[in-house]
Design a protein around this nucleic acid. Sequence first.
RNA 1: GUGGGUGUAGCUCAGGUGGUUAGAGCGCCAGGUUGUGGCCCUGGAGGUCGCCGGUUCAAGUCCGGUCAUCCACCCCA
Length: 387
Amino acid sequence: MIKALRGMKDIIEDKRFLKIFDTARKIAENYGYSYIETPILEETSLFKRSVGESSDIVNKEMYQFIDKGGNDVCLRPEGTAGVVRSFIEHKFDRQQTPKRFWYFGPMFRYERPQKGRLREFHQFGIESFGEPSVYEDINVIAMAADIFDALGIDYTLKINSLGCPECMPKYREKLIKFLNAHKENLCEDCQRRINQNPIRTLDCKVESCQAILKDAPKITDNLCENCQSDFEKLKKGLENLGISYEVDKNLVRGLDYYTKTTFEFVSTEIGAQSAIAGGGRYDRLVEFLGGKPTPGVGFAIGVERILDLVKTEDERSGIYMGAMTPEAIPFIQKKAKELRKKEKVFVETKPKSLKAHLKAADKGNFKKALIVGEDELKKSTFFEKEL
RNA sequence: GUGGGUGUAGCUCAGGUGGUUAGAGCGCCAGGUUGUGGCCCUGGAGGUCGCCGGUUCAAGUCCGGUCAUCCACCCCA
């Protein structure tokens, strides 16, 4: 038997997906975002340049291959890069007006599957281009919060600032210096991280590392004036909207393109992979991918991660139509065509006893059954029953 | 990539120390006197016991490998 590939799942009759999609889409459009869909397959270099060569995603998790034309391509591991590529390709960077997009689609990462981690998973994401103000960050976070609220999902919002090109590199040097001074006492992973991604050491789970790292310099204590003031505005702005948050000085996003505001929505109910949405500002990314300097901010929600947190009701709906004699079927089909202009109608094409029809209508969760037997056919009427 | 758990009907699972036709519950299908569902009762269909190999007179049951799955590390949505 041929089965779906490892870490990939069929989505069958799962109302939760549609509920998440419909809810998120509605809210995004109310925030003024418009729909964008970009190809699932992109040139590999796009992700190398945006997500970053130091990240695990690009380093070892991409579905990458050479196509028949000799192009180095890969299945997208995340959504932002493709949207930015499209933004630049369509010259939106040459206009002054902000552009805001939402998207929904599959992403691919060749990882070891576990709870909340699949090789093909879905993200609902948004990207806002051309708005440098921290107030836009607040709008974006508020939108994510609205979506989770509408879906009835509890979360903790964590925020941090990664600084800008002015303060981040200075901080990075300072941190590396600190780490090297304590190198022998750090775990193997952290020693490796010093050069690869020093900020990652900050949230190391090894206790002995944490003991050392609690005295490490924190980015939030090393922000430049502008970043510091924006971070304060961010906090005030969230308070103003009644959105509670925690400052997590160790919150680092795994993608290299983030600057300044970063945030993550986490749930305590879904296992180790607790991030249900992540995002932040990426003011240098458009420029880095060859466009005119354009600020950006966005987030992505992991659809499969919130699936178990979404409840859907199973209400009776629609009409079940059935015939007790074969001759009645054309009569039913004609009536069904008319009724479908207004609501869901299912026609059973196999003649059955009344009892069998009612049973089937009940099992199918219909709210009404219309059955035609010999008597009804003669009079062109229906046996009608509310379920 | 590393570690641990699990793989028996569509689903959830039973199957001491290896021994004749492999079980239950749920679900599914058909009936329970002629045209009224949900409850109940009866009957039925459905399994190369993940796969490959080994030990044995004999393996779902023991051993090895492999694949898949789950959980954790790692990483991240």
